[in-house]
Design a protein around this nucleic acid. Structure first.
Lengths: 111, 111
DNA sequence: GTAATATATCAGAAAAAATTGATATATCAA
DNA sequence: TTGATATATCAATTTTTTCTGATATATTAC
């Protein structure tokens, strides 16, 4: 199994992005595929500037990406980012050398 | 594959607990096994009340448990909690019905 | 007993994150 | 062109989180 060293701040950034109910709901909706902001807003019933703020947090954490088409912005999950999050959690659950404070990701654990 | 419905607030609580470098470092150390607070403090070089605060956040999220023995408190990872975190992330990466806002955990994806 | 140690908790300060309402920008429709 | 729509951003405020220093409690050592 490959082993990749990552930094704690990347990990906390991802977890922080996932630590809010509105943002999790967005991620959940995007799990079904690309959505425009207007659809997210209609489904989640949040103020427009607030949704925009949360989308920015997700984007800065690398969890979603966006593209513009006409008047609409479409957001999509970045599949690698969730895989990364998955691997980090998996790694946290596994023992490693006590003296190493750098987090060593163990690599893909499932298909 | 079994499918368990969980709530968003449980998920955000877990992710919030993991969204801090000190707390991640603690989780990492506990990955090797139980540690007393004094050992964590020595290794992480943080103020005592600050470490105590972070341990409380982890404990309230159900990620660690503690036991008292004489003057010392020992903290351990709660293995089920990391498995739960792992499953939640795994679930987030998978499509599900758009109208369901409850997060449906797909179940164990790897041994 | 007294002193030292390990830890938790508390109050206040500081820092960070989230919310709100307003405004700006671009695009499209009429 | 005028007006409406989709979205982003900004400033001000509010809320939440974190940090610090002090104090409290229990345990053990002397």
């Amino acid at each position: 199994m490959t082993s990749v060293r990552i930094d704690l701040s990347r990990s906390t950034s991802i977890f922080h992005a996932l630590s809010d109910e509105t943002r999790l709901a967005v991620v959940q909706m995007l799990g079904d595929g690309e959505r425009c902001v207007c659809d997210l807003q209609a489904a989640l019933d949040v103020a427009q500037s607030r949704l925009s703020f949360h989308l920015k947090v997700l984007k800065e954490a690398g969890l979603v990406s966006d593209r513009k088409d006409g008047r609409w912005s479409y957001y999509t999950l970045v599949p690698d980012a969730l895989t990364e999050a998955h691997d980090i959690v998996h790694t946290l659950a596994s023992p490693r050398s006590a003296e190493s404070h750098a987090l060593t990701v163990l690599g893909r654990c499932c298909g």
